[in-house]
Amino acid sequence: MHPLEPISPRSRVLLGILFFVLFIAGWSFATFGGFVSKTFLADPLTMLQDGWLLLTKQGFLWDIAITVWRVVGGFILASLVAVPLGIAMGAYKPIEALLEPFVSFARYLPASAFVPLLILWAGIGETQKLLVIFIGAVFQIILMVAVSVSATRRDLVEAAYTLGAGDNGIVRRVLIPANAPDVAETLRLVLGWAWTYVIVAELIGASSGIGYMIINSQALLATGQIIFGIIVIGVIGLISDFAFKSLNRWLFAWRLA
């Protein structure tokens, strides 16, 4: 093992799986060994049983679908607003001067703290859930996109100018393609955060969704269900992250070449 030395894909996968095995082993040891009370932490088998019941008897699939729809919906709305704004800010300094201070401020407003306010404004319907995610994601995306667009290599911009590109051409044919991979990476990151916001939104004032199931199970002391819910979130996150990464790698092959 030397710094930055690559490892084979096989060992990478094996090592990755190994840690999951260790984690589950530790968990089994703590629960089956009787070191932790069943009330506080269910063992892996109970968790799977509870999960199965949730899926087959209590319509948990529907909750999963609702939550996914909220995350994706809020995230897409935020991206549609934030990506063009971020590009405009990065490209045109007056727009940056106008918006940057406010966006930097707004990005530190915790989305979860908006939940009570949004319930007052938008009720406890879907609009409120989408808004929580929107608020949590939009400012982050704007800022990160603006930063990467500002940092575009100047010599590439100058080369495009000497090839006859106008301002419009610079934005469309240099700034956007040059930063597309960074923008995609930003979106992938923020999608991960959106999962946190949706659960918070569903813990308060919701009647469906994974977060709602979790808060319900707390009242029933069903820790198996809670853990199953958390793991489902993790697995969906892992899948969407993997899909996003593969898509980026396919779209931006020039980066890896």
């Binding site: 590439l156 100058e158 040059a178 020039w254």
Partner: peptide, 13 residues
């Protein structure tokens, strides 16, 4: 037209 001292091909094209 200009050819620069540094490499300025567009890496995405």
């Amino acid at each position: 037209g200009m050819v620069f001292q540094s490499y300025t091909l567009f890496p995405w094209l």
